[in-house]
Computed example of a mutant assay.
Amino acid sequence: MSEVLSGYRQRPDYRVDLLARTNSFTATVGPRQLASSDACLLVDEQDHGLVVYFPPEAVDTTLLEPVALHTVCPFKGEASYWTLPGGDRPWIAWTYPRPHPLLGQSIVAATRALPGRTVRTAHALFTSAADPEVPLEFTVTPIRAGRSFAAVTVGVRQGEKVRTSCTLLLDAPQPDLVRRDTPAGPPVAGPETAGPDASPALPGREVRIVDCADINDPDEVGPPVVDAWLRYDEVPAADDLQRAVLAHFTGHLGISTALRPHPGLGTAQAHHTLSTAPMGIGITFHDPVGWDGWLRYHHEATFVGAGMAHIRGQISTRAGVLIASFTQDAMIRAFDTGPGPEIPGAARL
């Protein structure tokens, strides 16, 4: 997987200060108010002027439209941009939305805490959305470490707030007694005939979705099943990083899969008229992980109702070898009054 290298490797003394402010800030264009908040961050970055960042929930995103532009800062990450329809500027606002892959990072933290073991299962609850601008603290607490198996919990905090709690089972892979590693269900068309994902691309990764023009479109109606092909430019060599990479995409298409059979509903409405978020993800790794080329992520929504959805899935190689299975429990609800905070669902991952 392509890595956006941190600029601090070359410039360890580079300064980016985040200053929390309690005085009120307002952003307007002509008579239109785009944002207002008394909980902004003042970013004082070396070689740059002072910039005020508004919290996502303080921005009226109904006035803005996303554009295809993406840039990368080696110190702050990847930025996405918005424009004001009818305006004379190609873009007017930006954010750094790329989330911390909390499940994947928990897998790596547990492996580093217990060297010689590999993660077999990981079950994470995303209790609140992480702030991509605030450092994360991972705490690994052993439950038991025996000769064969070990179990740990990983707590993820930002300051006093708990973001994620993850329970993991680790072991040392053993020789086969019996083996069956064929994915369930019929085969699907390959990535060559699948269409590209309409969502903004992540550098170093390509996603293609089978028999679906736009998975986010409320008018894209079909069965509660979605198959996606995914390929990374580079696959990390370390086993724990490979498992983290596999886990990262398990939460991206579950809610879209659950909404697909229902006309007029789609993830394009998320945080506008629909309140959606992954609340829990579990993943089980079936083998010493290793692959080259395309991966197939198969999603099936088995239940939708009572404001929740349950999705199960499988990850297999292009050759048809099952290497991992996963589940997701997601929130899908209507807003009582108006649009809600623009929090990417993946920020809980």
Rank of each mutant, 00 (worst) to 15 (best):
L246V: 04
L246E: 02
L246I: 03
A247E: 05
A247V: 15
H248V: 13
H248E: 15
H248G: 13
F249E: 15
T250V: 14
T250K: 00
T250N: 02
T250M: 04
T250F: 02
T250L: 04
T250G: 12
T250H: 01
G251P: 08
G251C: 11
H252T: 12
H252W: 12
H252E: 15
H252C: 10
L253V: 07
L253R: 02
L253F: 12
L253H: 11
L253Y: 11
G254A: 10
G254V: 09
G254I: 08
G254F: 06
I255Q: 10
I255N: 08
I255R: 06
I255S: 07
I255L: 10
I255K: 11
I255D: 07
I255E: 05
S256W: 06
S256Q: 13
S256A: 15
S256V: 04
S256P: 01
T257H: 01
T257Q: 01
T257D: 01
T257F: 01
T257Y: 00
A258Y: 05
A258M: 08
A258D: 06
A258V: 08
A258G: 09
A258R: 12
A258H: 03
L259Q: 09
L259K: 03
L259C: 08
L259Y: 03
R260Q: 04
R260F: 02
R260N: 06
R260G: 04
P261N: 10
P261E: 06
H262F: 12
H262M: 08
P263K: 00
P263C: 03
P263Y: 01
P263V: 01
G264A: 05
G264L: 07
G264N: 04
G264R: 08
G264M: 03
L265N: 05
L265E: 12
G266N: 03
G266C: 00
G266S: 02
G266Q: 00
G266H: 06
G266P: 00
T267Q: 00
T267L: 05
T267F: 02
T267V: 01
A268C: 09
A268K: 06
A268V: 11
A268F: 03
A268Y: 05
A268P: 00
Q269E: 14
Q269T: 03
Q269Y: 00
Q269K: 10
Q269D: 02
Q269F: 02
Q269W: 02
Q269S: 04
Q269M: 09
A270R: 10
A270P: 00
A270G: 10
A270V: 05
A270S: 14
H271G: 03
H271A: 15
H272N: 07
H272C: 02
H272D: 09
H272L: 15
T273F: 07
T273E: 10
T273W: 09
T273L: 14
T273Q: 11
L274V: 14
L274S: 04
S275H: 06
S275A: 15
S275V: 13
S275L: 05
S275C: 12
S275D: 14
S275I: 10
T276A: 12
T276Q: 13
T276W: 13
T276N: 07
T276R: 09
T276S: 12
